[in-house]
Design a protein around this nucleic acid. Structure first.
Lengths: 215, 215
DNA sequence: CGGCTCCTTGACAATCGTCAAGCCTCGTGG
DNA sequence: CCACGAGGCTTGACGATTGTCAAGGAGCCG
């Protein structure tokens, strides 16, 4: 398996200094931060001090094995909340994929708002469990089909949309290589199930066929 | 891929009728239920009315694809809580693996105790994310190594322990076939990393080697 | 226009799945 | 208590999907 190196320098999140205080207020402090492509939001081993809501753009959450293999556990799109951790420590890396805006929600007394967080955490859990099924029991083309359906749904349900991430991100999300992902795209195109007007743009032609493949 | 059929008849959980009322009390109603091997706890599509804590034995939580492929999302051992759902509907099946005792916790006004549930839900999330890494980026022998370490840890950290589940359960948990799981066990045995005194008993000899393989 | 990165395609190799046979273990019943 | 039978486990041979290596093409930015 090819080993890649990823930008792992932690770039401190630019944030006006004067507004980072008052951390333990009953209402969590909310602070929007703008990130460039590849900028890290948090890293494995860091203390988890906040939750994050994507304002625009997209985020990848991943882990690395010692030899450089990478698994992206989740992509997060506009409106989604991520950064949940069980023991106060991040076990994953989170990075902006492209230019991305993130609302940082610092948690003071988290117990007070846990009834708001539980549904969000559960949604993450369900998504991750669905993803497990894909990684454990689906073939390459089925994984890509499921991925495209998921992306279409999370971008408003339109048949035509842009992928925010590269083929390598998709590969590391689906547990495949970029070559296999590329071949799956080509096969879906050849079958007339999708059109690929640009490298990152997808047009779903036969929604039903995609759905049949992924299930 | 071989297609299996699984006992999917729903056997109602035996429970004294008189104690199923008072669902919305501030303290959740707790009720221990004993299940035989293979008995279903809940099924996909059912309404989620409770959480479950394993008293003894073990539980498998899984999903089926249309063609019968099965992915076990999680095993739950004594002390663990499962049954979290995001939208009030179960998206998975849960079954007792062997003879198993389960504490049923009916949730009334869940908001009141969500601060107790959030950490449990987050633990499930972290476990599931770890599992993702295994399924997405590890080879068969690495998956089995990681599985054995996980089982050892969750049974008290002893070097010698019993597996509650069959090879097929392990295969469906790790996204492999029973043959591949069996071969991985054999290779670990040949390398002197583990001993297998019985079909379901494991003795870890070289803990460090297992750890190196799984990471 | 040049250079770069990302993507695609092809040939080949490796891991894993499939099919098949045989063994072991355990539970049942004589 | 032993024999038998059924299910689960192991092993082998072979094939298929996917990974690896390599080269070439397309799009993008300076």
């Amino acid at each position: 398996m090819t080993v890649h190196k990823f930008a792992s320098e932690f770039k401190a999140v630019a944030m006006p200094a004067g507004r980072r205080l008052g951390l333990s207020a009953a209402t969590p402090v909310q602070q929007v931060t703008c990130l460039a492509a590849g900028e890290q939001i948090y890293g494995q081993g860091e203390q988890a001090k906040a939750l994050y809501e994507v304002e625009y753009g997209a985020v990848r959450v991943y882990r690395l094995l010692a030899d450089g293999r990478r698994q992206i556990a989740a992509f997060h799109m506009a409106g989604e909340v991520f950064g949940f951790e069980a023991d106060g420590t991040h076990h994953f890396f989170a990075e902006a994929i492209g230019a991305t805006g993130v609302r940082v929600m610092r948690l003071g007394a988290s117990a007070e708002i846990s009834h708001k967080l539980l549904p969000l955490a559960l949604q993450s859990l369900v998504r991750t469990q669905e993803h497990l099924l894909v990684l454990g029991r689906q073939h390459a083309i089925e994984r890509v089909a499921a991925f495209l359906l998921d992306m279409a749904e999370r971008q408003g349900g339109l048949a035509e949309f842009e992928l925010p991430m590269s083929r390598m991100d998709i590969a590391d999300y689906l547990g495949l290589t970029i070559e296999t992902v590329s071949r799956a795209f080509t096969r879906l195109k050849e079958k007339g199930i999708v059109k690929l007007p640009g490298l990152r743009s997808v047009h779903i032609i036969k929604y039903q066929s995609l759905d049949d493949m992924s299930a």
